[in-house]
Design a protein around this nucleic acid. Structure first.
Lengths: 108, 108
DNA sequence: GCCATATTCAACCATTCGGTTGACGATGCC
DNA sequence: GGCATCGTCAACCGAATGGTTGAATATGGC
């Protein structure tokens, strides 16, 4: 489920990373403090939601952002919000708040 | 959190109802099979996510859809999907799938 | 064939989530 | 004041979620 997949900050951070480029699972996991298995699970959730695809090339599995699912969910949400144009100030506050792609810290 | 709030089908159905008109809590709860307390909790989650507001007028509390939060989240998601125009066929499949506003059944 | 690397699987644990029930607090009406 | 209605609170329960660890499965390089 797309929204459930987006509800977790780690998964949103992963999407942000994949926005820049396709990545191997190991490389996706590198900046996080959690185990590779945990990241692998997160990637499975994202894949089941259709947000990323995974393709094995040799030993390494490449993860790719699939923007369609996000775009579709976004359009669905627009259906609730289409009455007025976007309030850019509010959007800025929003970006600075909970939904910002979280900065991944290395500190324990 | 907006996405967590949207992750539950009951809450999405509530949003769909509020899209048509403001409603009292009791009336929101009416079509569902669950207790009033459960719906009250769902409304709290939606309110904390900024998706609905509640205003007491006399004995009854009126619930109102707040489209800003949805619009902002939608714009955030568009950031991931802005590379190509929306695939309308895919969107139609999407609407027929998991994200459709669930039909609230009265059957046990 | 053997070893190292990349990833997932399986079992487990703590926490959160979605629901229930019963008691409680506010408000309107007589 | 007294009562019915509207809504929340609190305690509880089972299921799902996010994490861990250790073993298992590919695959590539030698």
């Amino acid at each position: 489920m797309v929204f459930a997949a987006l509800a977790d900050p780690t998964r949103r951070a992963i999407l942000g990373m994949l926005l820049e480029d396709d990545m191997a699972v190991t490389d996706v996991a590198e900046p996080f403090q959690m185990s590779l298995a945990a990241i692998s699970k997160h990637l499975s959730v994202l894949a089941e939601a259709g947000l990323v695809s995974r393709e094995r090339r040799g030993r390494v599995i490449w993860c790719k952002l699939e923007p369609d699912a996000l775009r579709n969910a976004s359009v669905w949400m627009q259906g609730f919000g289409q009455f007025e144009p976007v309030d850019l100030d509010a959007f800025e506050r929003f970006l600075e708040g909970e939904l910002t792609l979280p900065v991944v810290s290395d500190a324990p």
